[in-house]
Simulated assay, not measured.
Amino acid sequence: MQTYIGTKIIRALPMTRQEYNDYRGWQLPADENGDDEGYLVEYVDGGKANDQRHAGYISWSPKDVFERSYRPMQGHGLPPHQQRVAEEKYELNEKLGKLLAFFQTEIFSSLPEAERSRLRNQARFMDGYSAVLQERIVAFGEQQ
């Protein structure tokens, strides 16, 4: 096995395990503690949305795991121009997620092939742009 370290941009909201289960409309399993502190995490760097209220994939993370893995970007020494890059990537990924979801609709299917092709090209360019922004964000950590 090889060891990896990842960099992701996420959105998060403090929430107990019970609150997360309630939010999702799920029953808390009998062997889990609903009072466990944690976070609802929305991955904005990819992953198919699994809840219609969110553009990205959501899950729940225990507080200790979350806090070892993620740090707030604001207040951690990122200069404003670097913070803007992270925000730009977040906004771009939200738009890309919506475009990819549009591809699954009847409206998209009813468009002429030339327009569908242009939209697919748009998605490819957006994905490439997102990858460049990700490289820049990773480099920010190497510069500190």
Rank of each mutant, 00 (worst) to 15 (best):
G77R: 10
G46N: 00
A101M: 10
Q144P: 08
P79H: 11
L133V: 09
Q18F: 07
L40P: 01
I10K: 07
E142Q: 10
F103N: 12
P80T: 07
L133M: 14
Y39M: 06
T3V: 09
W26V: 03
Q2G: 04
R136E: 15
M126W: 01
N21Y: 15
E94F: 03
A101G: 12
G97D: 08
D127C: 00
A114Y: 07
M73W: 13
Q52R: 13
Q144K: 12
R68K: 11
T3I: 09
V41K: 02
G46Q: 01
R84Q: 14
K95R: 13
Q143G: 11
G6V: 00
P29N: 04
E135V: 07
F125D: 02
Q27T: 15
M1H: 06
I58W: 03
K63G: 03
G38V: 06
Q27V: 13
L78P: 00
F140E: 04
R116Q: 15
W26S: 10
G75W: 06
F140N: 05
P112H: 09
E19A: 15
S109P: 00
L92F: 03
E42C: 00
F125N: 06
K48G: 08
E67N: 15
E42L: 01
V65Q: 10
D31N: 08
P72I: 08
V44W: 07
S61F: 04
G56V: 00
P62R: 08
G34I: 05
A101S: 13
E42W: 01
Q27W: 11
R120F: 10
G128E: 14
Q2L: 06
D35E: 15
K63E: 10
E37F: 10
I137N: 04
E67R: 11
G56M: 00
Q144A: 14
G141Q: 10
N121D: 14
F125P: 01
Q104V: 06
F103V: 10
D31S: 02
R53A: 15
Q74K: 11
K98V: 02
N93R: 02
Y4G: 01
S69G: 13
E88H: 07
R17I: 01
G47H: 05
I5K: 03
L119I: 14
R68T: 03
S117C: 09
G38E: 08
L78N: 05
W60I: 00
G128H: 09
L96I: 05
E91A: 15
R53F: 13
G6C: 04
G25Q: 11
K89G: 00
K8Q: 06
N93T: 01
A55G: 06
F140K: 00
D36R: 08
G77D: 04
G47T: 05
F102Q: 09
P79M: 12
E87F: 08
K98S: 08
V44R: 09
L28Y: 00
R24Y: 05
I58L: 00
S130V: 09
H76C: 12
T16K: 05
N21T: 11
